[in-house]
Design a protein around this nucleic acid. Structure first.
Lengths: 335, 335
DNA sequence: TTCCTCGATGGAATCGTTACCAGAATCTAA
DNA sequence: TTAGATTCTGGTAACGATTCCATCGAGGAA
C-alpha cells in the first residue's frame, strides 16, 4: 500500500458501490444493517480516514479559521491565540496562524492567501484601520470576520472590543490624585481603536480633574519597545521631567523601563509607572507595578464564540471585555 | 456574482477552453502570445484567484505545515512559532497551529487531524517520548516530521535539538565554585530529551567537582508553575535548606520564585537562582537573574529550514542549537 | 394476481483544478 | 506541392468525496 486509503478502496473491499460507502460513513439513514456492517468492517480493516481536502472541495466548507495578528510572540496575543485555538478545536475547526509583522502589505497578502485557502472565517487584529488595503481586502473575503480591538466602519464584522478607557481613566485619576501633573503617555499609533480608546480614558481623567492635558508628553507611534525607549528617553530629558509614565502595551512598557534603567531611575521612587496589560511572570518579577489588566483568555475564547455564532447563521455582533486598574507600589510615593 | 470566480468563468469570458486557461495561468511554455493576453485580461477583469483547495486535491500537496506544541502561550514557543511561520510563509507555506494542552491524547488527535488535512509536514514538540500513541501515530503520518528537542528512536524524522547540557553544566559548576552544595533542580518530566539533557549537564558538573549529586533535591515532573511551586516549597522546608535553585523552563521559574516570595527570600541574597530559558521583559525586570539562554528565533527558523529541506528531497537530519550561561547577581553572594 | 409504494442500492454528475491525448493549424524542407 | 515536424488548442479524465436520480426488489393493498 502506498497512498492513503480512499473511499474507492473501501468500496472494492466491501464489494459495494462508492455511493453506498459514502452513505454509511456519513450516517445517512436509508442504509440496511448488513450494508452498514460490511462497509464499517472494510473501512476499519483498511484504516480508512476521509480526506478533508476532498470533503472541503465538495462541501464548500474547510472547517478552518484564519488568525492574523501583528506578532504571535507578543505574550498577550499568544494567550489570545491559545484560548481561541482551544475553543475552535473543541468545535472541529483548525486555526491557520499568520503574523503580519506590523506591515499592512503583509497583512493584505495574508488575507488574500486565506481567501484562496477558502477558510470559513478570519479572526484578525489589524495593523491599521485606515490603510488603503483594509476595506477592499476584507470586503472581498466572503467569510465571517472577527476583529480584535479594532473599529472599521462599514464591514458587517463581529468584534471583541476591550474597554481600555475605564481602566486607563481610573489609573490616570489615581496618578492625578497622588499629585502627578507631568504624566507621559507612550503607546501605539492612533490609527487603531486600542490607542484611541486608551487616550480617551486618559483625557477624560484630566478633564474631570480640571487639569490641562500634557499634550507634549503624549507619544503615539508604535507598540514596539524601540519606539517607547526613544520617546521615554526624550521625555526624561525635559524640564520639568515627567513624574509618571503610562505605558501602552507590553512592548511599550519594556521600552519605557529600559529608559528608566539607563538613567538609573527607580520605579515607584524616582518615577511612577502604570503598565497597560500584564506579561508572563508579572506576578513574580513585577509585583510592584501598577497595571490596567484585561483577560486575554476571555478575549480569545470570545473571539472563537463570535465566529462560531456567525457560522451558525447568527448576525455579527460586538462583545466587550473590561479592564481593571490595580494600584501598586510603582505609582505611589514618588511625589 | 455570488460564488468566487473559477477557471471556468475565465474560460467563458476569454472564449477559450478550460485547459488553455490553466496552461496560461500556470506558466506553461506552449502558449501563444495572443492566447496569453486574452486569458490574462479575462482573469484580471474577473479578479480570478486559483482555489488552493482544488489545486491541492489535484496535486497532492497542500503547502501547509502542522505545528503541534504543548502551549503556544509559553513565551519561548511563541517566539519559535513566529520565526517558523515567517520562514515558512516566505516559502509559500501556511502554518496550522495546534496546542496539545499537555495531553498525549489531544496530541494524538491533533496528529490524526493534520493527517486528514493532508499537511505536507509537521513540526512538533511532543508531550512525551514514551507514550503508547507516539510511535504509531507518527509513523502513520506519511509526511516529513521535525521534532523540537525530542529524541524518539526509529522515526526517520528531523530534529532541532538544544544542547542544554553545556549551559546547565557551566551554571552548576559556577554554583559549586561559589560554595553551594545543596542545589535544588526543578524541571519537567524525564520522559523528554529536554529534561534528560539538562540533568546530564547538572550531574556532570557534580561528578567533575567530585561532589555527590543531591538526589533528594531533584524534582522532575512538570513544566508548569504549580508543580514547581509545590516542590520548591517542600525543598525550602528541609534542613539543611537548599542554598541554590536551578529552575528548568519559564513555568518552573515562575513557581520557584513564587515560593521564594511566599517565604520572603530575596533572590541573590537569601537564595541563589539560575533560570533555564529567558522570558519577555527579562532584560528589564529580571536583570539580576542568572540564566541559561537559547535563541528561540534560531530554533524556529531552523525547524522551518529542516522541513523545507526534506520537502525538497533531502534526507532528514538533526540540527543543534547551543546554550549560553550568564552569571548575574542572583547566583552570587548568597554564600 | 396486479398495481403501487417505499426502502435500498448503483451509476453518474459535480466541486475547481491539472495533465494527458488527439487533432488542427502553421511552418519547414525536399 | 506535399510529407513531416512543430506549435498550439480543445476535450476529457482524473484527484476523493457527496448527492441526486433512476432502478430494482420486496411488501402491502385492492
Amino acid at each position: 500500500m502506498e497512498g492513503p486509503v480512499t473511499i474507492r478502496d473501501v468500496a472494492a473491499r466491501a464489494g459495494v458501490a462508492l455511493s453506498s460507502v459514502s452513505r454509511v460513513l456519513s450516517g445517512h439513514p436509508d442504509v440496511s444493517a448488513s450494508m452498514r456492517a460490511k462497509v464499517e468492517a472494510a473501512a476499519a480493516e483498511l484504516g480508512y480516514e476521509p480526506d478533508l481536502l476532498a470533503q472541503s472541495l465538495r462541501s464548500g466548507a474547510t472547517r478552518t479559521i484564519g488568525f492574523i495578528i501583528r506578532d504571535i510572540a507578543n505574550p498577550l496575543f499568544a494567550v489570545v491565540a491559545r484560548a481561541c485555538e482551544q475553543e475552535l478545536r473543541r468545535n472541529g475547526y483548525s486555526l491557520i496562524l499568520m503574523n503580519s509583522d506590523g506591515s499592512v502589505e503583509t497583512e493584505s497578502k495574508n488575507f488574500a492567501l486565506l481567501r484562496r485557502r477558502r477558510v470559513d472565517g478570519v479572526i484578525a487584529s489589524l495593523v491599521a484601520e485606515d490603510s488603503p488595503y483594509v476595506k477592499k481586502t476584507i470586503l472581498s473575503l466572503r467569510a465571517p470576520l472577527v476583529l480584535l480591538d479594532r473599529d472599521v466602519k462599514g464591514l458587517n464584522a463581529s468584534a471583541v472590543i476591550t474597554d481600555h478607557a475605564i481602566g486607563v481613566k481610573a489609573a490616570t485619576k489615581h496618578l492625578l490624585n497622588n499629585g502627578h501633573r507631568e504624566i507621559a503617555f507612550i503607546s501605539g499609533a492612533a490609527n487603531v481603536y486600542t490607542t484611541r480608546n486608551r487616550i480617551k480614558g486618559f483625557s477624560e481623567a484630566f478633564a474631570e480633574a480640571g487639569v490641562a492635558l500634557p499634550e507634549k508628553l503624549i507619544a503615539l507611534g508604535g507598540f514596539d519597545a524601540e519606539y517607547a525607549l526613544i520617546h521615554a528617553r526624550h521625555f526624561l530629558l525635559k524640564n520639568p521631567r515627567p513624574t509618571a509614565f503610562v505605558a501602552g502595551g507590553i512592548g511599550s512598557t519594556a521600552g519605557v523601563v529600559r529608559a528608566f534603567n539607563e538613567m538609573n531611575l527607580k520605579i515607584g521612587k524616582d518615577v511612577a509607572l502604570v503598565a497597560l496589560d500584564e506579561w508572563p511572570l508579572f506576578d513574580v518579577f513585577a509585583t510592584e507595578v501598577s497595571s490596567v489588566y484585561r483577560d486575554p483568555e476571555a478575549i480569545g475564547s470570545e473571539a472563537a464564540h463570535l465566529i462560531l455564532e456567525v457560522l451558525n447563521g447568527n448576525e455579527p455582533r460586538e462583545s466587550v471585555i473590561d479592564t481593571k486598574f490595580t494600584a501598586r507600589a510603582s505609582s505611589q510615593g514618588v511625589i
